[in-house]
Design a binder for these strands. Structure first.
Lengths: 326, 326
DNA sequence: TATTATGGTGAAAGCGATTTCAACGACAGG
DNA sequence: CCTGTCGTTGAAATCGCTTTCACCATAATA
């Protein structure tokens, strides 16, 4: 492995000069040329390990996600990756498989590990999370939740759910049921349910608390909850779901119970999943700019790291949403 | 930042002793105890940068994927992440967005960057790829393609497609069309088409070359190709697709042209997408163990890195497949 | 008793970059 | 001629860890 010293010797300069050449410090034109040729000749590339040790910066960003095989997460990471690549950073991906404690574990790990900053695609935020975020030595941005005192890029789930509920209340006759997720997930659990309820209520068609079920983000859990709902309350004519994935499950359940093709008109979701849209022609759902949230969060993080002027650094950013098919 | 020397001083030993304690070398019981307490007291964690510089190993594995928001890829990375986490490594993710030259770029980047090994989720393998793989300084495993001279974990696309074609030939009357992908992708492009054709032929119902179209892995491309096929050859009664995603597009096209619910019986795919399965009840498709391929590839890679005995290290592994809904 | 293992130990030499610092040649102004 | 800048330069000191090596007890063997 050719090192800086070799290049320096070949070019007849000191390694300090090579380092300056590489980093844009004082260097005369002729030496720069000699160094350039020596580098080409030897095929030298600098060791990022040594550089990291000396400078304390690794150009690595830790990204913590709850689940890697989900459309929303992969769109977010696509956005993160886009910005990272463009700005000379790389992504260290940590998958927690929906285990909140592993999030904290990674938060700890990353700090003393080689990342310059962290993007946390958050689900549940416990006090322990808050503490870990607070005491984080590297800058951190959250995606998906709005947490006091932390930089966040999020969507207004309450507002979106309210609008969806309000819009649906008018066009559904009969009972509406709701399949949510754990309220520990403030955004997808609490806010969406509350917003949806409020929207229905405002339209004069309040949600019956007995018709609320809890799923676990998976298609199968949506299916199970919907089957159960339909058997307990056959007069339910519409099932709103906290995610498109669970809506897909509910859709299958309705098709099985009420006949093929029925579900499409009786289900709503959140997230505007591409597959679901294509296969059903589009159920009522909320479109979030997942890719945008990745892009915005990462830009914010990198701006503070690179000390970009004119940028106010870490702040909280609420992104817009769009009702679909209502 | 508390460093090893601080811990050593507090414990009244040399930093060499601390290092040995941390790495399981010779250390007496009482010193071990003193060191342990000193570490707890100071909250010391060792700098992985310094460690990496000294040992030359970063415990980082570079993973190159063609596209991050696709179900197959996220299942593969889920498998990779599982093994990596269990064995004390982390994943450095690089997304090429289906640009073959960026794959080579990352291959170069990773070698002189801080990864101990590479997993390449491969699509197209050009000569340039072969060269880059050949000259790779760190061990590398490919997923999804079988390339001579490289360690590969792959599925037998030809065989699977053959079986699918053979099975379908019998139960479809009328013309069968095919929407494939670029043959530069040997596995998903060339092998699947060839296998499918051979399967149909063997069953006495050969594929009309005029009814072959090319998509680009996306749902929309499947939709477009199917619309075009149906308008040019309205007597086509079945459209086989090289991926489930394109099959979803074709399904929508058929539903639009021939009436809702029609598509389900007239389309086949590859990959056994969970959404598609749930929403349609299941079109004929091939189930691949994507997660398994990630697991197997990573285990293989880590075995060679960690020098696990009894394991023969890098080799090529063909995984099985399963016909679904035929 | 003389010797050889054996289990422990710390000083010191790197790993390969960056960065400080003192110094140098040239050149302008006084 | 002397002094002060200015643009460059290389020697040397880190960064924080691992690992070799020489060495020391103490126990086991000859």
């Amino acid at each position: 492995m050719v090192k800086m010293k070799d290049v320096a010797e070949l070019a007849g300069v000191s390694s300090a000069a090579v380092s300056r050449y590489l980093n844009g410090g004082y260097i005369s034109a002729d030496k720069a040329e000699r160094i350039k040729q020596a580098i080409e000749l030897t095929g030298y590339v600098r060791s990022s390990q040594a550089r990291a040790l000396r400078t304390g910066s690794t150009k690595l960003i830790g990204v913590i996600v709850p689940k890697i095989n989900s459309e929303s997460v992969s769109r977010i990471t696509a956005g993160i990756g886009q910005v990272l690549g463009r700005r000379g950073y790389q992504m260290l991906l940590a998958n927690t498989d929906n285990a909140a404690d592993r999030e904290i574990e990674y938060l700890d790990l990353f700090q003393n590990h080689p990342v310059d900053g962290i993007v946390l695609v958050a689900t549940m935020i416990t006090d322990e999370h808050r503490r870990a975020i607070e005491s984080c030595r590297v800058p951190i941005v959250l995606i998906g939740q709005n947490v006091e005192g932390a930089a966040c890029v999020y969507h207004d789930d309450y507002e979106a759910a309210f609008e969806l509920g309000h819009a649906l209340a008018g066009r559904v006759d009969g009972k509406i049921a709701y399949i949510g997720v754990t309220e520990a997930d403030r955004a997808a659990g609490y806010d969406r349910r509350r917003g949806f309820e409020a929207g229905l209520r405002a339209a004069g068609n309040p949600l019956d608390a007995a018709l609320i079920r809890l799923g676990s983000f998976t298609l199968d859990s949506g299916y199970g909850a919907a089957r159960e709902l339909l058997s307990v309350a056959p007069d339910v004519s519409f099932i709103a779901c906290a995610t498109d994935t669970m809506a897909a499950g509910a859709l299958r359940a309705i098709d099985e119970v009420c006949g093929m093709g029925e579900g499409i008109h009786r289900v709503s979701g959140f997230g505007d999943n591409a597959f679901l849209r294509a296969l059903t022609g589009g159920i009522p759902t909320v479109h979030y700019g997942y890719l945008t949230s990745g892009v915005e969060a990462t830009n914010m993080l990198l701006n503070t790291l690179d000390g970009v002027e004119g940028e106010s650094g870490l702040k909280t950013l609420k992104l817009g949403h769009q009702l679909m098919n209502v």
